[in-house]
Design a protein around this nucleic acid. Structure first.
Lengths: 175, 175
DNA sequence: CAAAACAATTTTAAGCTTGAAATTTCTCCG
DNA sequence: CGGAGAAATTTCAAGCTTAAAATTGTTTTG
């Protein structure tokens, strides 16, 4: 509601990218790039978290979980959600517990395989999610508003290349 | 050590960017951009966390804290560290406690103002950090290796624009 | 068919993170 | 000087996150 910490301290450090590291040879360009990426991502993420809490008394993990379910009318298997959200299965268990208690989610055991849990948004959960999603889209839109469509396109393409690079590296293993 | 979860499931979801959200009007381009950014950032971050744990039995927050201190030969005030790392002061307190126990950090109360805590790397802490930093730089370098220098430059520039956009939006407040 | 192997999920232990309340220590004004 | 108020940090309660171990249920195979 009032000016918050993020804004107060922004002038001091936001442009510093001070999370610097030393490099033995000269991986410095990559490090700078990574730190800048991380800074952008962190700034957006904390703002989204803050607003979800303030406006909806909710959290980003809960929002993400509901977002996964939003397009799965028939619900989704717990393990599938875990993979898509890139988080550990145990994590999902806890989130689902709370969201089920609060009436946002329903959970069913698959009759043909009683190991499998299927979770889905309840109508209430879906309605709540839609409110949040609309606001969320506005927030992101504002945060990115200073980027021209052209810049957005270029950034999108470069990030696609980066993503390929990362996945390739992960595939190569400990290289 | 062995092929891990991340790699196993990668083919399934990594290219899906399924954390999708619905948009009332058409903030869709910005949303896609944000999700791609977040994906890249998350992939790199979890890989770094994993390796810090495996190779050094350490964590990213500890590494980041030491990175802050690395260039401050005379140490740093706790509050300053907290601002630079963009985390809450209470968080730093806990991290410093553990890193002090393990001998990586020293902490002193400023004689002229006994509210102020000054923390610094010990020689041991500095030596440990340098090992980690060198490996860290290698990891990042590998992850970004698929990007040409030109792409790297373009990405750097676009991210700079994005950062300005984000900060401007934060400055505008709840807009 | 039973046992081993496998699969999905939950539990557990540990650590990170936050916002808010509480502490401790200054500083400044009357 | 003495207290109000501000500043730096710590404590607290709650929630997130993970890896690894434990459960529960299914499938495969001898």
């Amino acid at each position: 509601m009032t000016a918050d910490k993020t804004l107060d301290i922004a002038p001091d450090w936001v442009d510093g990218e001070t999370k610097a590291l030393e490099a033995p040879h000269d991986h410095r360009a990559e490090l700078r790039l990574w730190l800048r990426l991380l800074t952008c991502s962190t700034l957006v993420e904390s703002e989204v978290r803050r607003r979800l809490r303030e406006e909806f008394d909710s959290t980003l993990p809960r929002f993400d979980l509901m977002a996964q379910l939003e397009r799965a009318a028939d619900g989704m298997v717990l393990g599938e959600v875990s993979k898509r959200m890139m988080v550990s299965p145990g994590n999902i268990t806890v989130l689902v517990e709370r969201l089920t208690e609060s009436g946002h989610l329903s959970r069913t055991t698959l009759p043909t395989d009683r190991r499998v849990q299927i979770i889905a948004l309840t109508p209430f959960g879906r309605a709540e999610f839609e409110k949040m999603a609309a606001r969320h889209a506005d927030w992101i839109s504002d945060l990115f508003a200073g980027l021209t469509p052209k810049d957005g396109g270029v950034l999108m393409d470069e990030l696609a290349k980066l993503k390929r690079s990362i996945i390739a590296s992960l595939g190569r293993g400990g290289a």
